[in-house]
């Protein structure tokens, strides 16, 4: 089987993520919470960045802004040269589909779909033909070491296996940027180590990764660590 292409063919843009003086405020009842206070960050193609810091410091908020599922209160967020705050909902959805892969702590696989079907889901949304979807999903499951489990449903897979499927799904549409929010948070140390190795392999194969984590091992595996405290990068 040929090695799947996990990064786009042509990434002419060097700078994948560019945040300038980003603020994000929330209203919590009557109170205004300043989740991010003047954050600036750049992530280059092929980079592997771990965002670390105590709970509530704004790591996930930052990741959501980079993932175009949230918009800043002020400042600018550019992903692959596109200003996200100017995007309509449908534009942001389409942008995420084609440019960003997500991995979450709780995997969030569709329980009624098999591993293969879960990986095929974003490809179907992107309009890929069924034969192409099958071929690429099989390759991706092979890449994450789950070719023997592709016809199993999530309930028949272990936590580590489910996270591997989620990683394969995140790579489905060949994204320029892979975002992971506590990807080892629900796994035991041994399984977590496997996932850390997988992320390292992905980065070595060319994926640009931003990961939010409390896991020191995962953070240490990254090329660069960004420390956050009280909504600021320190």
């Amino acid at each position: 089987m040929t090695e799947p292409q996990v990064v786009p063919d042509v990434h002419v843009d060097r700078l994948i993520v560019s945040l300038r003086d980003v603020h994000r405020d929330y209203k919590l009842g009557e109170e205004r919470v300043h989740a991010l206070q003047g954050v600036s960050l750049e992530v280059e193609r092929g980079d592997y960045v771990a965002i670390v810091g105590p709970s509530g410091c704004g790591k996930s908020t930052l990741l959501n802004l980079i993932g175009v599922i949230d918009q800043p209160t002020s400042g600018t967020v550019e992903i692959r040269g596109k200003r996200t705050e100017e995007m309509a909902d449908w534009e942001a959805t389409s942008f995420r589909l084609h440019n960003i892969g997500f991995v979450f702590q709780r995997f969030y696989l569709m329980p009624i779909l098999t591993a293969l079907e879960n990986v095929m889901l974003p490809m179907a949304e992107a309009g890929l033909a069924k034969t192409e979807r099958l071929e690429r999903a099989s390759q991706l499951l092979d890449y994450v070491g789950l070719s023997a489990r592709k016809n199993h449903r999530p309930s028949q897979l272990s936590g580590g296996e489910q996270q591997r499927v989620a990683i394969a799904r995140s790579l489905a549409n060949n994204p320029a940027l892979l975002l992971a929010d506590e990807p080892t948070g629900e796994l035991d140390a041994h399984t977590g180590a496997d996932i850390i190795s997988l992320f390292r392999k992905l980065n070595e194969d060319g994926s640009t990764i931003v990961v939010v984590t409390h896991d020191e091992d995962l953070a240490n595996a990254a090329r660069r660590k960004v420390h956050m405290r009280d909504g600021r990068i320190v």
Binding site: T93, I100, Y108, P122, R169, N173
Partner: peptide, 16 residues
């Protein structure tokens, strides 16, 4: 809600 939010995050459109 989590599953649906993830679907939206990975690019599944509102229409779908």
């Amino acid at each position: 809600t989590g599953e649906i939010a993830v679907m939206r995050a990975i690019g599944v459109s509102r229409v779908h």
